[in-house]
Design a protein around this nucleic acid. Structure first.
Lengths: 163, 163, 163, 163
DNA sequence: TTTT
DNA sequence: TTTT
């Protein structure tokens, strides 16, 4: 039961290898840094412009394991998921927000270069049963490609709850 | 496991009351006729033009029951699903195709007029590995990590293929 | 030209009236606060849980004007857009990120309560470079008038109308 | 203006080379045959099952030309579009329906094998009835960070950052 | 056949 | 008819 649709669809490339960790309870948690870019020719200057958007994608359980095992920097992926914005209070006492994409489905695109082409997986649908949702996530993400990753000072600790 | 994405998203109105039936195995099967329309002013004639597209949406199990119980002609719905084209041979011996949208998610939109505003439901995920289709999806897909899986009272048992 | 897909689809309710302003150049800029929520019954506690996600949606130009004119707090909307994360440096010198959804399409849902039911609008599609599309659209979009289109398979032969 | 959302998203492989033709008016029309498949292990038999869905995708204008020029059998593509069902009357006098996906966006996936990796294109938006859209979108969308705004010949000038 |  |  719910009221609303919260859906994200991405096709992009990984800016870094996946970062996989496990919660105390043993659940795999993988974070991807996915780039989607677009380019166009500026009308006035006539110059080619490119803008890249970076997305922090998190996945859990089986999906996280597959991503951790098969994905690599540069690989193209299809991601379906939902937006989740966490609120946290900085050391300066100011509330801030950090937005992630929680993947519910993932599809590796392109050829079989490397480890695992053509895999597809579906998440456990945590979003619908959140259970012990809640716990924010701490800095398990910034990809190498991230020119400047999200605050490491998010100031919260996750010792068991995946996020 | 799979290779590909096959996704449909509709927001439209029901052109008729839902048609619900049950398979021999007891699985509910509901068909919706959903209209999506768009209108614009023709550039040349200056006349207002309207075009309506009609979609046949099918759903199974719990989702079918909710739709059958709460939806009515005229009601606005959000549908998420996938395309399925069936081939059949006409009496004239010619092969033809018929395309349906198999709903995996449904959301009633608009106010609480009539029976059920604000309900939302998710299909059993038959499309993603639910065994022999229509095959019960009980327990499919929740990640190992799931401390508390989705609502899921959808543990229905159909021994017959719903379609 | 581009490489990647960056798409967001929301169906939710406005948590507040839209905020519209104009740039010095006269472009309307409207910000919406959209809630998408889901609820479920926790398996262990048996309690009903609800989680609401808030999304900051921005729109420009004609779309912003329509939203500003017709939307109101509580209204249900369909939003399609893309994610954009801005980097900024706080007063403390720490870089932070803020994520918005840039709407390219909007649809008011539900009945005609208040100002404007049933409106729909599309952004300029600036992100993808409508630019030199120019491609003639002749013949596109008819169909309504088509009484007898595509033959059985692909092998159709029509000499003027594209489909 | 419109009421409804009619959206299809596909990621699949071409089962054949694109078929391109031109209308009498010179508009390019390309048809793609796109496969999306999924496989799973049957619960009861334990056998691996695979099901492939075939989609007929049509595109027009510039998009059709790009597809015709760069796509080839086997190539993986992302397609975004809408459903259109045509009614026609067979020789036997029976009315039938044929469903196509009218592409509004296309993205070639995978490596640069052959002609054109990493291209992306957008349709002319014929589905919206181009008509009096008119609404200028110039200046939309460029973020503060945006070094140079989108293509946008759509007509207005803002000298100030919209947000 | 819906809806605006 | 594709792909893995």
């Amino acid at each position: 039961m719910a009221r609303g649709v919260n859906k994200v669809i991405l096709v992009g490339n990984l800016g870094a290898d996946p970062e996989m960790r496990h919660t105390g309870g043993g659940t795999a948690v993988t974070t991807l840094n996915v780039a989607t870019s677009e380019s166009w020719t500026d009308k006035q200057s006539g110059e080619k412009v490119e803008k890249t958007e970076w997305h922090r994608v998190k996945m859990f359980g089986r999906l996280a394991e597959i991503a951790g095992d098969y994905l690599k920097k540069g690989r193209q992926v299809y991601i379906e998921g939902s937006l989740r914005t966490d609120k946290y209070t900085g050391k300066d006492g100011i509330e801030r927000y950090s937005t992630d994409i929680i993947a519910s489905e993932m599809q590796m695109l392109g050829g079989n270069d490397g480890g695992g082409g053509g895999q597809r997986s579906q998440g456990g649908g945590q979003r619908q049963g959140g259970g012990n949702y809640g716990g924010p996530s701490r800095g398990n993400d910034q990809g190498a490609s991230r020119s400047s990753p999200p605050p490491a000072d998010n100031g919260f600790a996750d010792d068991e709850i995946p996020f």
